[in-house]
Nucleic acid binder design. Structure first.
Lengths: 220, 220
DNA sequence: GGGGATTTGTGCTATTTATAACATTTTTTG
DNA sequence: CAAAAAATGTTATAAATAGCACAAATCCCC
């Protein structure tokens, strides 16, 4: 059975919310309450989970730790994942120093760049190698995921090389859409694209602030 | 007529691809070619654009610069947008120094934090203010968008304050799902969540690398 | 320990989203 | 200049996604 991608995309959100609940010491949660925390209907959550099994107890709900464990296993988070970063400019260095990866089992084990100013230098105890050594390095010490933080003009070539080196998942910080063979996963991190989807809704609401909180009669 | 959110979400991708084409000196593009660049069917693109008008010419395609201009106008990118950053830790500083915002008309004009080590310091020619001055500052010099880069435990309160201060769009870098009143736009930037949607597909393919390129008979 | 209150998992229905197909227009070619 | 090729905009169709509603199970209270 092929599980819809939208369902998979929601699982990490469930996991994130469950972690917060566990932190707060909650032992049980209903689809109702989980849905309220995430802005998702309870039916949606139950349906999503039913693709993978039966995790709840009628009349009670879901055991927080238990469901979290199950979702983590479904997502493959019960192991560590190795990543290679390409592009160690400002953005790349910020990615290298991001503390959020390791606690979830994601580790950057290689860093590549072409800039002679950067190659050979050490960031976060990782020596930057020249991109020309990419294939060789990954043959010796493979990774599961490639993280791309190079200028958009260079991104396609970098991604091609990662894929040829056996990488089957790309986290793409470059503001472009790469072409990859089927079976290779790509996810985009592009704050500007997200901002642009919000401005559409902001546009033409300039008057709202002014009107806000006024006597409703003023509107007529 | 209410335009589907998925359609709005694709417009920035069209704009991005059109910018690349314009850069390359292309003057005209068909839905076919644009779709190939983005991994989207030509029918999808034509349908999306038809929500907003008729931009193409039968037998020819779309004028690259013209369509780009139209999409930018639809998205409200024909003006500048002011943003306030809350949280000037490692991540916040990386956001402050990100060069990708300004060229698209997005400008961080305020930065807030609570850490006395950071408040008062200058980053990218912006003096960090204490969060307690948030409401007052935004009353004096309003912004359109709030950018949140605080720890997840603090994010809900920060977002509440931004919303109360009149901000109607939030770019959320904190790994949590905030509750906001209707009409407030929220977009999430969470690399870990994206990584976790990929590991699902990677999981259980450990053998693929080994099998790749081998005699197909080996698979039986 | 019985009855009302909860809450799951799921079949069914509605809604949303994507694709296909085609008439129409424009361009290009011989 | 006529015919073939190319490409749009749109209507119709198909596929995917979400929500409803309810039987069944469990819990909790008196």
């Amino acid at each position: 059975m092929e599980i819809p991608g939208v369902v998979i995309a929601r699982l990490p959100l469930y996991a994130q919310a469950l972690e917060a609940l566990a932190q707060k010491g909650e032992e049980v949660v209903s689809s109702q309450r989980l849905g309220e925390a995430l802005g998702i209907t309870p039916a949606q959550i139950r349906k999503d989970l039913s693709y993978f099994g039966r995790f709840g107890k009628q009349g009670r709900g879901y055991n927080v730790a238990g469901l979290l464990g199950s979702i983590r296993q479904i997502l493959g988070l019960d192991r560590q994942w190795r990543m290679a970063l390409v592009g160690v400019g400002r953005l790349g260095r910020a990615i290298l120093s991001y503390e959020g990866f390791a606690p979830q089992g994601f580790h950057i084990v290689h860093a590549f760049d072409v800039d002679p100013e950067v190659v050979g230098r050490k960031f976060e105890s990782l020596v930057v190698r020249h991109v020309r050594e990419l294939e060789e390095t990954l043959a010796q010490e493979p990774v599961d995921i490639g993280v791309v933080a190079v200028p958009p003009e260079a991104a396609q070539e970098v991604i091609d090389r990662l894929v040829r080196a056996g990488v089957r998942a790309i986290l793409n910080y470059a503001p472009m859409t790469p072409r990859v063979p089927p079976g290779v996963q790509v996810r985009r991190i592009d704050p500007v694209v997200l901002l642009e989807t919000m401005t559409y809704y902001l546009k033409g609401q300039e008057g709202v602030r002014f009107l806000q909180g006024r006597d409703p009669l003023f509107l007529r």
